[in-house]
Amino acid sequence: MDRAETQAPPEALTVVPLRHYGLWVGTAITLVILGLILKALATNPAFDWPTVGKYLFHPSIIRGLGQTLLLTVTIMVLAIIIGTIVAIMRLSPSRILNAFASAYIWFFRGAPALIQLIFWFNLSLIVREFSLTLPFVGTLFTIKTNDVMTPFVAAVIALSLHEAGYMAEIVRAGINSVASGQTEAAGSLGMNHRLILRRITLPQAMRFIVPPTGNETINLLKTTSLVTIIAVNDLLYAAQSIYARTFETIPLLIVVAFWYLFVVTILSIGQHYIEQYYGRSDQQQGASLGEMLKRAFRFGRMAQPA
């Protein structure tokens, strides 16, 4: 450095960048492919963009979208609750609880979602009716399985049990990621197991639980399209019902894909802010959620022009 300064002022030196020929070739090929795709999208009549526009906000498509969102939210909430319980059982000192939780995860995560879905839908083949009978009182009530197990209920049960298998592993990994010293310190302050779990372990585990849970939610949103097979009126089913009649298959699939991508985008943005919220103790200055959002948006504006 010293020598360079004595020979010439640094600003007088020209830097010749290394030529990345491979990069240029790669870029050129990518641009050509991109051009071909765009041309196909624009000129191939099968895509039929006006029809896409016509159905994008079609009432039955919007109703299907609502059903898909309802399914996703209901299943995810149930899966988080069941998964957390299974994870806590998995970490329990009781061998039986531990083995039960392991078996649960092995089975419900291992068996394909589609098979579980069809199984629950056909539960009446195993159990015809549910009834509550008490000695000396007699049968209090009886319900036919087929009356309870509507396609929607079957979808919710099957997919929440399946999803809970994944959530249990995510929650377990999160709880394990919290240093054991935290539990010891809480214990030495006289906090009991439940209090420690609720106030100390789980909140810290959240930072490790939230990102994969976001991924799971996005995954689940798309997995719910499987319910089409048991005739739940979700987004894909709504589109299928239309193109079965009109044969406008490709435009309607584009409509469906558009809505899935739209919701996934919204979810990804939401996930980003939730992650920031749970990572706040990592940041240099203490920040409330409000301050953090403000900072996040300012950062976003700065990043855009570049």
Binding site: A179, G181, Q182, E184, A185, A186, G187, S188, L189, G190, M191, N192, H193, I200, P203, Q204, S281
Partner: peptide, 24 residues
């Protein structure tokens, strides 16, 4: 558990690695 927690609450402990609750 309840009694154990009560008695532990009367015995303070300071750890080598501090063990402050990092989310608080």
């Amino acid at each position: 558990n309840k009694l154990l927690c009560q008695r532990r609450a009367d015995i303070g402990m300071v750890f080598q690695s501090f063990n402050l609750f990092s989310h608080m």
